[in-house]
């Protein structure tokens, strides 16, 4: 199975990371591929439900990725972090600085465009 799985919706592209561990040895390469894979999408939902462990370097790389997305004015959401990773995000206050969603579905709802009038 490819470690990145893409699914397009009208409002966003969901990129699921099929990796149990995201560590210093893989994070930079994988997250750069996420950035490339998200090119052209109206918004990006990064599904982290399969990721069980991230080391500190991977966390840093994730923050760098979100910074690049923000700088490029591309809406994004980090979805379905497992509880230990969410605790780590809270410890680092990342929930205040990065966009998180409980589920891919809620992220899709967030990015839904209001129907255009007339």
């Amino acid at each position: 199975m490819d470690d990145l799985q893409l699914q397009d919706y009208p409002q966003a592209r969901v990129i699921r990371l099929n990796l149990g561990r995201l560590t210093a040895s893989s994070a930079a390469k994988v997250l750069t591929r996420v950035l490339t894979a998200g090119a052209g999408a109206p918004a990006l939902i990064i599904d982290l439900s399969a990721v069980e462990f991230m080391d500190s370097t991977a966390i840093g790389e994730l923050v760098v990725l979100t910074r690049r997305l923000r700088e490029a004015k591309r809406p994004y959401c980090l979805a379905e972090l497992r509880p230990p990773l969410m605790s780590l995000a809270r410890l680092m206050r990342l929930e205040r600085a990065l966009a998180f969603c409980d589920s891919v579905q809620s992220a899709l709802t967030r990015f839904e465009q209001p129907p255009t009038q007339g």
Binding site: G60, V63, R90, L91, M92, R93, A97
Partner: peptide
Amino acid sequence: GHPYPLISRANGQIDRLGEGGFPVGLL
């Protein structure tokens, strides 16, 4: 961003300090 400091009181109670904070050099 460092783990929560713990205080072990003389009466045996454990207190956990802090509510997290941004790491240094990230944001």
